[in-house]
Simulated assay, not measured.
Amino acid sequence: MFAVLKTGGKQYKVQAGDVLRVEKLDAVAGQKIQFNEILMVGGESLTIGVPFVAGAAVQAEVIDQIKGEKVIHFVKRRRKHSSQRTKGHRQHLTLVRVLDVLATGADASGVAAATGTADARRAAHNAAPAAVVEAPAKPKRAAKAAAAQE
């Protein structure tokens, strides 16, 4: 059985036992995660989602958090007053091993859904803030405010 899943803006065709390098996920090594955005499930019968297959999931185990190959970005301006600049970048990736492809019953599996780091930051930002404690007013301002009220 195989599945086509979507994560990190990319699509991957996977089956049990595959090892993938995906965009960084908010998980630690050894943690079991579940991809819920499944576009297609194949095997004895083919199921195509609109846009996702309901109840389908891919369960995986995080192997490690790694960095990809270095990409060099070189800029050169020709002729007079020329300059050049070299920048490098290594993308943060997560190495995962696919454990199982579930065609149905993903809701009752009890495995945490895979979320990217951007999703985790967005959720933390949108969460309700803790109780805000107001700082006491400065003495000069308190004195001026009391004088103004009298």
Rank of each mutant, 00 (worst) to 15 (best):
Val4Lys: 12
Gly8Ser: 02
Gly9Trp: 03
Gly9Gln: 02
Gln11Ser: 10
Lys13Ala: 05
Val14Cys: 10
Ala16Phe: 04
Gly17Ile: 05
Gly17Cys: 04
Leu20Trp: 08
Arg21Glu: 11
Arg21Phe: 15
Val22Glu: 01
Val22His: 06
Lys24Cys: 00
Lys24Thr: 00
Leu25Asp: 12
Ala27Glu: 06
Val28Ala: 15
Ile33Lys: 09
Phe35Asn: 05
Glu37Asp: 13
Met40Cys: 08
Gly42Lys: 08
Ser45Glu: 15
Thr47Asn: 07
Pro51Trp: 00
Ala54Ser: 12
Gly55Tyr: 07
Ala56Met: 10
Gln59Phe: 09
Ala60His: 01
Ala60Phe: 09
Glu61Gln: 13
Val62Trp: 04
Glu69Tyr: 07
Lys70His: 04
Lys76Gln: 15
Thr86Tyr: 14
Gly88Thr: 10
His89Lys: 13
Arg90Pro: 12
Arg90Tyr: 00
His92Ser: 14
Leu93His: 04
Thr94Met: 05
Arg97Thr: 08
Val98Cys: 07
Leu99Phe: 03
Asp100Phe: 00
Val101Asn: 01
Ala103Leu: 06
Ala103Pro: 14
Gly116Thr: 12
Thr117Gly: 01
Ala118Gln: 14
Asp119Leu: 09
Arg122Ser: 12
Ala123Ile: 07
Ala124Trp: 08
Ala124Phe: 10
His125Arg: 15
Ala127Ser: 13
Ala127Phe: 10
Ala128Gln: 10
Ala130Pro: 00
Val132Cys: 01
Val133Trp: 04
Glu134His: 07
Glu134Asn: 10
Glu134Lys: 08
Ala135Asp: 10
Ala135Gly: 01
Lys138Thr: 13
Pro139Asn: 02
Arg141Glu: 14
Arg141His: 14
Ala143Phe: 15
Lys144Gly: 02
Ala147Lys: 14
Ala147Gly: 00
